[in-house]
């Protein structure tokens, strides 16, 4: 049976972050297994300066940090500062137009001229390029979060050690995500 704690997280994350159902189930399971630790690492999105170190300094081969999307803030833009390179001449899905080094950001046509952007977590390396682009040229709806279905909750997070903006902090396991503008 699911604990109350897990149920609460699942609903909240689904609503706030627009995470996929599968991802949220994974998150819940991990949270339960970590419940003895009481706090987990998280990124304060208002402090993150998108330096790129979340991609290079996690102890895991594929970083536990992923981009998440607050759909409610997104403009569903045809020309997306998070998806397209700033010098892209076409607003298409060609590889040379894309900013993401791993094509982890997926663009889906909604209705002319609106597009939805979603993160393929298995491809995302947490490099923050899209976050910086969205912040600089769009509505700032993309941001980085430590995903607790992957993070092994190191005593001393190796990204936190090198983070130039002191954006990593310990948060209560019951509230493991920090939303932009609300941290």
């Amino acid at each position: 049976m699911m604990s109350d704690k897990k149920k609460k997280l699942t609903r909240r994350d689904m609503l706030r972050l627009g995470l996929s159902a599968g991802a949220v189930v994974g998150l819940g399971a991990t949270v339960v297994s970590k419940s003895a630790t009481k706090t987990v690492w998280q990124i304060d999105p208002d402090k993150c300066v998108q330096c790129g170190k979340c991609a290079t300094d996690c102890v895991l081969e594929l970083s536990a940090v992923k981009c998440v999307h607050a759909y409610a803030v997104c403009g569903y833009c045809e020309l997306c500062g998070g998806y397209h390179r700033p010098d892209a001449t076409k607003t298409d899905t060609a590889a040379e137009s894309q900013l993401c080094p791993t094509s982890a950001l997926e663009r889906t046509f909604i209705e002319d001229p609106y597009y939805q952007y979603s993160v393929k977590e298995e491809l995302c390396i947490g490099c923050a390029k899209c976050v910086k682009g969205c912040d600089a040229f769009g509505n700032g709806s993309l941001f980085l979060q430590v995903r607790h279905d992957r993070c092994v909750n190191c005593n001393e997070c190796s990204i936190a050690r090198v983070c130039p903006s002191d954006a990593f902090k310990r948060v209560p396991i019951e509230e493991p995500y920090l939303l932009k503008g609300k941290a």
Binding site: C51, G52, D57, E61, G133
Partner: peptide, 15 residues
């Protein structure tokens, strides 16, 4: 297993 490190981060996005 470590990812690229050094003074120049390959993922730094300079705007």
């Amino acid at each position: 297993r470590q990812k690229p490190k050094g003074d120049v981060n390959p993922y730094k996005y300079d705007i």
